[in-house]
């Protein structure tokens, strides 16, 4: 495990991330830095690599080259004689437990109630006392507006409710960093608002977040920094006013013109 120099506020740093699927390059030298408390929103057309980038940040995808550091600690790999070797499962799991991931399709555990979904990892991964975790889980459910759904199974919940339980489940681990992978893309339009509201509140509370989304309103409102990705590279990045109102690149303008 290699400790990097940090200035104390750097939560995530990705350096020159390269990822191929077969002959296709999906990430071509991505650099990304996220400071503590920052909300970074990644936008871009589908196939641009933004979801893959997010998955790499949780080591759900392996990378072909580059480095990812979470609070200065390298994620997924260690260096042996200058070569990258995949890290031990236990180490990867420990770092992952500090990163919340919210999936496009929620991925709640269908054989557990909402409450059981939330307490599962704190109890079985962090070995926290069940009673204490349960209390926290109920508070989280209240926070996402679902205090009355504690004993409900996922398939009885709407998509928006499921996604909010999934967010609560991730938050129960007290993550340092939250990753949102198109968290509202699978939802019916009328359910999107509730989920965005929860994400907005989280951002206000100072959670460090990397959000892949197609919700441009959310990006403009909540993001500290917007990143526009296309064809495996970061085309443009900056504060939302700059990227949305004064895009510097033709491709950004085209993309925004298409969706706004």
């Amino acid at each position: 495990m290699e400790k990097q120099q940090t200035n104390g506020i750097e939560m995530l740093r990705a350096e020159k991330i390269v990822k191929h699927f077969g002959s296709l390059t999906v990430l071509d030298g991505i650099d990304l830095t996220v400071k503590r408390g920052q909300v970074v929103v990644i936008i871009g057309p589908s196939g641009s690599g933004k979801t893959t980038l997010l998955r790499c940040i949780n080591h759900l995808e392996k990378i072909d080259s580059g480095r990812i550091y979470i609070e200065g600690e390298m994620l997924g790999y260690r260096e042996v004689n200058g070569r990258l070797v995949e890290d031990r499962e236990a180490t990867i799991a420990r770092i992952r437990s500090q990163i919340g991931f919210v999936f496009q399709r929620f991925n709640l555990f269908p054989h557990m109630t909402a409450l059981e979904n939330i307490i599962e990892a704190p109890v079985h991964v962090l070995h926290q006392p069940k009673a204490e975790v349960k209390e926290r889980a109920l508070a989280l459910l209240e926070k996402v507006g679902l205090e009355d759904k504690a004993d409900t199974y996922p398939h009885k919940l709407s998509g928006g409710q499921q996604q909010r339980v999934a967010i609560a489940r991730a938050l129960a681990m007290n993550p340092k960093l939250m990753l949102f992978d198109e968290a509202t893309s699978a939802l019916d339009p009328e359910l999107v608002g509730d989920v965005l509201k929860v994400m907005d509140q989280l951002a206000r509370e100072g959670m460090t977040m990397v959000v892949v989304t197609h919700e441009m309103g959310f990006a403009r409102e909540v993001a500290d920094e917007v990143i526009f990705m296309d064809k495996a590279v970061i085309v443009e990045e900056g504060p939302p006013e700059q990227v949305f109102d004064h895009p510097q690149h033709e491709r950004t303008r085209e993309f925004l013109g298409m969706i706004l």
């Binding site: 949780n58 759900l60 499962e89 236990a90 799991a93 420990r94 992952r96 437990s97 500090q98 990163i99 919340g100 991931f101 999936f103 399709r105 991925n107 709640l108 555990f109 269908p110 054989h111 599962e120 990892a121 079985h124 991964v125 962090l126 999934a166 489940r169 991730a170 681990m173």
Partner: peptide, 26 residues
């Protein structure tokens, strides 16, 4: 659904724990 294993992993569960608690019951 492979998403189940991914969700378990993203919560810091190791393969054995995820298999026992999440995959096998399903």
């Amino acid at each position: 659904d492979p998403g189940q294993m991914e969700a378990a992993k993203s919560l810091g569960m190791r393969y054995a724990l995820a298999t026992r608690r999440i995959i096998l019951p399903q």
